[in-house]
Design a protein around this nucleic acid. Structure first.
Lengths: 118, 118
DNA sequence: CCAATTGTTCAATGACTTTTGAACTAAGGA
DNA sequence: TCCTTAGTTCAAAAGTCATTGAACAATTGG
């Protein structure tokens, strides 16, 4: 029940860039970064897409090596692979997250003022 | 005869990332960065793709705001839009170029030992 | 056990992307 | 003027990607 992840040295720059070049996935990464350290489950991102579609995008992020997913019961706890990404592509993740933070055009997680259980 | 370029504030992060997420285009950007300051014409990149296909990829880079193309006679002189990219997305271009520089899997410009007129 | 919750897989569809060759334009040199 | 050089445009063919709904699996709580 462990999901397939690339090892750090299998992470490919063009694939990471292509995967981040989608507004939904970039919004996921931005939100993960804003809650860094806190593993989030998929349902946190339901503002961004349907459950099915989310599954697709989260798989893309995981397969690219951008995120890690840990299976815990019926949930998948998702975290950014910051350590591995920083090792492979120093500064890349930080600059992407900083730029994404400024981006008004990107879809938002948690705009629906339900920040009860943050 | 001036080609259409986005203004600096029209440059979009997801579009830039998506455009860089293609090995041919990333190789173009890497080569442009390695010759920074020197405007290159399209034919310098013929190692990477056919003339037609290059025209397509160079248009993508230009339309995304990654490169600037100046029409000089029958040539287009291509440069990186480093100033604008650095302003909009600080650190992004540098980290991408550094990471691309390490990437053995990326196609190469000038591998055919014809570095006569570098 | 039953039902709800959490998320995946599958097949289908529509939409974009990449690549190609043939035909073209525009400038420059002989 | 004619030819070459540099690059574009067009339409077609392939391929890839995103999105959907229906069906499925696994865990947890009552």
């Amino acid at each position: 029940m462990t999901l397939p992840h690339p090892t750090a040295d299998q992470i490919s720059l063009p694939i990471v860039l292509a995967v981040l070049g989608d507004p939904t996935r970039l919004a996921i990464v931005r939100y993960l970064a804003s809650k860094e350290g806190v593993p989030l489950n998929c349902s946190k991102f339901l503002d961004l897409a349907s459950k099915t579609n989310l599954s697709y995008h989260l798989a893309k992020l995981r397969e690219a090596g951008v995120t890690r997913a840990e299976v815990v019961g019926t949930s998948r706890l998702i975290t950014l692979r910051r350590d591995d990404l920083d090792k492979r592509f120093p500064g890349l993740l930080d600059s992407v997250i900083a730029a994404a933070g400024e981006d008004k055009a990107l879809p938002m997680v948690g705009t629906a003022d339900s920040e009860i259980d943050a």
